[in-house]
Design a binder for these strands. Structure first.
Length: 271
DNA sequence: CACGGATCCTGATGGC
DNA sequence: TGCCATCAGGATCCGT
């Protein structure tokens, strides 16, 4: 269920509660996208130090190694006590002295992967190509423009690619482009410096807002405490095909780009 | 070699 | 318990 905001909201909802816990047992059900990469029993008696995030990955630091957790399209994490036996789509349970961390993921595009450290080839394979974090000062408008320059692909696809910037998924890509007034089909290389700056700002704004509102755009999103999103963040364009643009009233259009739906306002967003 | 498409998997929804 | 097509928050891999 996650783009960056949902992953971050998930992280915030259990990071402080799990810190310091000692792992008592780990069970894997069906394989997720990749194998765990270690014997579950080898995690027993390790301590959970902290939970970080890189792009859409959660990094769970252990006393010896770390777990890379990705929620894929349909994954969600819950952390708490008194859990029932794992259900059909609960594929990873990590029992600790402070509670159980459970990954629920019907489509199994998600993953839990063990790595000795971040330099581990296993970790590098997943994290190595990731671009800049959008919510830190390392995300710079000038560099962002530079990153777009050599790309002849549509800007929407470049945003999803995660090399120019990480964490922008299908919903927020459409939303950020609307906010910036840029047509999703515009070639990244054709975006001027001022427009790149607008988009840079729009990405920060859209993602920050979504984190603040608790991952609100996802219909069935719940954080690790089981709290649902608040639906406060109304999408400007995503999922609004045919409905009037909230700014100018023109009907919102939808197209397919790389097998994903894109939504935009044909009047507000210029090529 | 950058790019586009197929692909992994399950569930919800809507048309017929 | 109808059947079939389409779509869904991601991202890797593989041809060209």
């Amino acid at each position: 269920m996650p783009e960056l905001p949902e992953v971050e909201v998930t992280r915030l909802s259990f990071a402080s509660r799990i810190a310091g816990a000692e792992i008592t047992s780990v069970t894997m059900g069906k394989t997720l996208r990749w194998p765990l990469g270690c014997e579950p029993v080898s995690l027993t008696s390790q301590r959970v130090l902290q939970v970080r995030r890189r792009g859409k990955y959660l990094l769970i630091d252990l006393s010896a190694g770390l777990l890379l957790v990705h929620l894929g399209m349909s994954g969600s994490i819950s952390f708490g006590t008194g859990f029932a036996a794992p259900g059909k789509h609960d594929h990873f349970d990590m029992l600790t002295t402070l509670g159980t961390l459970r990954l629920h993921d019907p489509r199994r595009f998600g993953a839990v992967v063990f790595a000795a450290d971040e330099g581990d080839p296993v970790a590098q394979k997943l994290l190595g190509r990731l671009g800049v974090e959008p919510l830190t000062e390392t995300f710079d408008a000038r560099q962002f423009h530079q990153a777009l320059k050599p790309r002849r692909t549509a800007i929407k696809q470049v945003l999803l690619g995660g090399e120019a910037v990480v964490g922008v998924g299908n919903i927020y890509a459409s939303e950020a482009l609307f906010l910036a007034g840029i047509r999703p089909t515009t070639k990244a290389s054709e975006i001027s410096k001022p427009r790149a700056a607008l988009l840079h700002r729009a990405i920060q704004e859209v993602l920050t807002q979504a984190v603040t509102k608790g991952g609100s755009t996802l219909r069935d999103f719940t954080n690790a405490q089981g709290e649902t999103g608040y639906f406060q963040l109304e999408a400007q364009v995503y999922g609004r095909a045919g409905l009037p643009c909230r700014v100018c009233g023109a009907p919102i259009k939808t197209i397919r780009q790389g097998q994903r739906s894109t939504f935009y306002c044909p009047r507000c967003q210029k090529p």
